[in-house]
Amino acid sequence: MEIPSVIAQRRSLLLAACALPVALWGCNRGDSGAAVKAVEIDPATTCDFDGMLLADYPGPKAQIHYADAAAPVFFCDTVEMFSALLRPEQVRPVRAVLTQDMAHADWNQPRGHWFDARSGFYVAGSKRHGSMGPTFASFAAEAEARKFATEHGGKVLRFADVKPEMADLGGGSQHDKHM
Rank of each mutant, 00 (worst) to 15 (best):
P58F: 04
A143V: 13
T99K: 12
R146I: 04
V79K: 05
A62T: 03
A96V: 05
A105L: 12
W114S: 07
A140Q: 14
A84Y: 15
E89Q: 14
T150L: 09
P58T: 04
A140G: 04
S131I: 05
A160K: 14
F139R: 07
F148Y: 15
A117G: 05
A103L: 08
A105P: 02
D68V: 08
A124W: 04
S83R: 15
F74L: 14
E89F: 10
A84W: 14
A140P: 02
K147M: 01
G154E: 04
G133N: 06
V123G: 01
A70G: 00
H65R: 14
R92C: 00
H104K: 15
R158D: 13
E80T: 01
G112H: 00
A69K: 08
A105W: 13
A141W: 15
M102R: 01
T150E: 14
C76Y: 02
E80F: 07
K155S: 07
M132I: 12
G112N: 05
D68L: 09
H65E: 09
R92K: 12
A117M: 09
A140W: 03
V91Y: 11
H104Y: 15
A70N: 03
R87D: 12
T78H: 06
A103P: 05
E151T: 14
Y122H: 05
K147T: 08
T135D: 04
V79P: 06
R111W: 08
V97A: 14
R87K: 13
R146M: 03
T99L: 11
A67L: 08
A143F: 02
A67S: 14
H129S: 11
Q109Y: 07
D161Q: 00
A141F: 15
A96G: 08
E144A: 15
G120E: 03
A145G: 13
K147G: 01
F115I: 11
D116S: 08
C76H: 08
G112T: 02
G120Y: 07
A96T: 04
K61A: 03
F148V: 14
T150V: 10
D68Y: 02
L86I: 11
P72K: 07
P134K: 06
N108C: 09
P60G: 11
T150G: 15
F139E: 07
G125C: 05
Q100M: 11
R111S: 11
I64W: 03
D68W: 10
P58W: 01
P93H: 10
F139P: 03
P60F: 12
T78Y: 06
E142P: 00
K155W: 04
P134Q: 02
L157V: 10
K155I: 12
W107Q: 00
Y122G: 09
P72R: 01
G59D: 03
L85K: 13
F75L: 04
T99A: 07
E89I: 15
A145C: 13
V156C: 08
G125N: 02
L157C: 07
R128H: 10
H152E: 06
A69M: 12
E80N: 06
A137D: 10
H152C: 04
A124C: 03
A96H: 01
A67D: 09
R92G: 01
Q90P: 08
K127L: 10
I64P: 05
R158Q: 13
Q100H: 15
A117I: 10
A149D: 11
P88H: 12
D161V: 05
